[in-house]
Design a protein around this nucleic acid. Sequence first.
DNA 1: GTCTATAGTTCGATAGAC
DNA 2: GTCTATCGAACTATAGAC
Lengths: 192, 192
Amino acid sequence: MSRRQQLLDIAGGLFAERGFKNTTVRDIADAAGILSGSLYHHFDSKESIVDELLSTFQRDLFATYDRILAEQPDTAGRIDAIVRASFDAIDQHHNEVAIFQNDAAYLMGFERFAYLREHNRRFRRMWVGLLAEGTASGALRADLDPELTYRFIRDTVWVAVRWYRPGADVAAQTVADQYLAILLQGIAAPKE
Amino acid sequence: MSRRQQLLDIAGGLFAERGFKNTTVRDIADAAGILSGSLYHHFDSKESIVDELLSTFQRDLFATYDRILAEQPDTAGRIDAIVRASFDAIDQHHNEVAIFQNDAAYLMGFERFAYLREHNRRFRRMWVGLLAEGTASGALRADLDPELTYRFIRDTVWVAVRWYRPGADVAAQTVADQYLAILLQGIAAPKE
DNA sequence: GTCTATAGTTCGATAGAC
DNA sequence: GTCTATCGAACTATAGAC
């Protein structure tokens, strides 16, 4: 792993744990065993570090979603796979998900991070589309507001990054199983 | 309203919007139309301000929960009323809920805010108890992990503070209706 | 209750030696 | 690629006048 990548990992861990604003460049340098000035040989600013972490993550995540939607033809399979891929992201890219959840609202205030808004737009469009598909086919109950249901699902999935710890006793896909069990029964059209 | 309470409201609004660490005492003073030094006539530190906001909120919230549990005898009525009271808190005490959601993890690092941990403990004990009641009576499905289900409900309810805006087009109790509709069907024992 | 003025820290970032 | 040394800005908080 390149020195640059090592430093990205170290910074990502600190940003995820304490937040972007609460992590100083001295904290990052200390954790890497160098002095703060040396960091600027690798990155031109603290913002550049978090930018590289978030933009890479956003690109990879939507590539995964696009692949799923291309492979899965039916709505139920799509919802299942998208939720599972999201929990997998919490497991495999924990730092980036945590930073996005905790600091994206703050970072979006800067022109440089305007691209993060595209993340939210795409995610919303995808889910509202999936819910519309399900309602049209009769698989999903029709008495729910699509916008509120989308927010319910979005928040439910991503907020798990607050307590889930990779490599702990509970596996990410076990959490996905349970969440899907509640969610799918909760939004399904009732059997008459 | 006392000057002290006015300043608490102004500070609460800024803390909720930008976060505790991202709000400076100058920001608060500017919003109040005074200079930053003058704030220290009313409070001895920035931490004291957020302390007063959070401790008051925590006390009132659990008084409400205790009243509900004393008045509602059956599990279904309790779950319904607790969720509705939580959405009401998001509506009526939006600043405090947002601060708790965004900054409690950071503030708990200080001895002074150790009492916030009691908030989490009591909330968990209450919900795990409610879920156990429901499972024992057969009203709730038995295949869900109580700990994961508790986290699912906790996160689902409180994270709504991120997008819900008091006084906007959607009323808090309308949101509660929809969330309860998904949640109650999702955790209910299936009709055979 | 607010102002003027400022102390004392900590922060992100830079310049140049090694 | 890291270190030494430091700048200038921003921050919380204080002291004393009005």
